[in-house]
Structure formats: C-alpha cells, structure tokens
C-alpha cells in the first residue's frame, strides 16, 4: 500500500508550467511538488498550474506546503491555479481560503488562459 506521489512537469510555453500530480499529497508528496515548483521559479517560470487529476486525497500537511509554494509564487509576481480537483479537495481548499489567492478551474484550458493573462 504505497501512495507515493509522482509529479510530471510540462511546459506549454512562455513562463507557464503545468505540474501533474499522481498520488497522495502528504508531507513527502508536498515536498516533491515544492522541489519542482522552486526549480521552475528559479528559472523565471512563475505561472504554475497544479493539475490534480490523479490525486484523490490530500492532507493538511501537504496543503501547507502548497501554501508555501503559493507564497513564493505571489512574492515573485506570479500566478497559481489548480484544476481537476475532486469535490472534497475543492471543498477543502475553499474551507481553507486558498481560492482567495489561487484560482480553481475544472479543466486546464481556462486555467492556462488565466495564467497567460488572456482572461481574467
């Protein structure tokens, strides 16, 4: 029974990157996402989409690490969006107030449009 997280990074162009997660976002999963995100931020890629289509469960430690990523993205004048959240992850993020500082979308296309500044 291992829920070890995997992260796949895609670069659709510009200063936008998509991080696709697969598995449980706990402390180790969150750290793995952070490692990839901070590498991207270090390269000037500060508009990030976290696609959680293959993540069905998270915990508050993992989400706290996502908040650290959000803080760094905002500090660099970037944007952070999420897509493909399960109803419970979506509800949890809204309970925590994450949706006030990061956008939540059902699918990647409108998220990428917002990250590129093509829509508000």
């Amino acid at each position: 029974m291992s829920e070890t997280l995997k992260v796949n990074v895609e670069r659709p162009g510009g200063n936008v990157a998509v991080l696709k997660t697969d598995g449980y976002i706990n402390n180790s999963g969150g750290e793995l996402i952070a490692k990839e995100a901070y590498t991207l931020l270090g390269e000037g890629t500060n508009r990030l989409l976290l696609d959680l289509e293959k993540t069905k469960i998270v915990n508050s430690i993992g989400i706290s690490i996502l908040i650290e990523i959000l803080e760094k993205v905002l500090d660099q004048g970037g944007r952070l969006a999420f897509c493909h959240l399960t109803p419970t992850i979506d509800k949890t993020f809204k309970i925590m107030g994450l949706a006030q500082y990061a956008r939540i979308y059902e699918s990647p296309a409108p998220a990428l449009s917002w990250l590129r500044g093509e829509s508000e």
Partner: peptide, 24 residues
C-alpha cells in the same frame, strides 16, 4: 483558528486539521 491571509506570511503554515475536520 487558522486564517489564510495570516498563514500566507507566517513561517509556520500548518494548523488546519481541526478546522478541516469541523468543516467536513
């Protein structure tokens, strides 16, 4: 009670567990 605005700038971002439990 954790608040996102405060947590975003705080060195410690944790402390959400009870709020999540009570909300769900």
């Amino acid at each position: 009670q954790p608040e996102m605005m405060t947590k975003l700038k705080a060195p410690r971002k944790r402390g959400w567990g009870i709020k999540i439990i009570e909300s769900l």
